[in-house]
């Protein structure tokens, strides 16, 4: 009963974007020796899902979305170390290396996507902006990533997304990674044209896209 009540409070803290409260509840859960995986699944995940729904319905705007995902990340940061030591098998949902391609120093869109992915339980390696194409591969190889996400805000730099896929092919690594692309000038046609595995037009859609892509690969 006590547990259900805490889960409901966690849920509400995420919906409200109340980082302080989300963190306090995560600490309380650990003190009460609750199972961290259950806490994440039943306490926090329904909260961020609800936030996604509210955003899709047009009730929540980006500031709410971001504040909630920040609260979610803060709670996860407290629970995850425990999770790893206690229950390795649950693990993370997938590893994603993300960044804005070289020549482009815009990172707002990429930050929103990285934040939502992290909040949804993915392990995200954010390389920042103006990232050399080689660096995406180096990082992905280093951490054993599943997905590489490339952002570009300029018409002048979106070509970097194509070059990256060419580079993967050249290094015979194309089959090793799923590549997703995004950014203001990017659309699904472009993603198809350059042979990317996916495109999403916003951060919530990016979470669905990543979930879908990973589910498909696992089925294969």
């Amino acid at each position: 009963m006590e547990k259900e009540k805490i889960f409901a409070q966690m849920n509400q803290a995420i919906i409200d974007g109340n980082e302080e409260e989300a963190v306090r509840l995560a600490r309380q859960a650990l003190e009460l020796k609750l199972d961290p995986s259950e806490v994440i699944e039943k306490g926090y995940v329904p909260g961020i899902q609800k936030v996604g729904e509210l955003w899709e319905k047009g009730e929540y705007f980006l500031p709410e979305l971001i504040t909630s995902s920040e609260a979610m990340k803060a709670a996860l940061a407290i629970l995850e170390p425990e999770l790893k030591s206690r229950e390795k098998s649950l693990g993370v949902k997938g590893k994603i290396v993300i960044g804005t391609v070289e020549g482009d120093i815009h990172d707002i869109g990429k930050n929103i996507v990285a934040s939502m992915l992290q909040a949804s339980g993915f392990e995200v390696y954010d390389l920042g902006a103006d990232v050399k194409l080689e660096k995406f591969i180096d990082k992905a190889e280093e951490v054993g990533a599943d997905i590489i996400g490339l952002s570009a805000l300029l018409t002048t730099t979106m070509i970097g997304q194509k070059k990256f896929i060419d580079l993967l092919i050249q290094r015979q690594l194309r089959d090793r990674y799923l590549v997703i692309v995004g950014g203001a000038p990017v659309n699904s046609d472009w993603a198809t044209k350059i042979g990317a595995d996916g495109y999403a037009e916003n951060a919530v859609a990016a979470v669905y896209l990543v979930q879908e892509l990973l589910a498909k690969t696992k089925r294969r």
Binding site: F61, L62, P63, G109, I112, A203
Partner: peptide, 12 residues
């Protein structure tokens, strides 16, 4: 080319 950012759709 400043813009009133649309905080629903993330567009300009």
């Amino acid at each position: 080319s400043p813009s009133s950012f649309d905080l629903r759709f993330g567009t300009t």
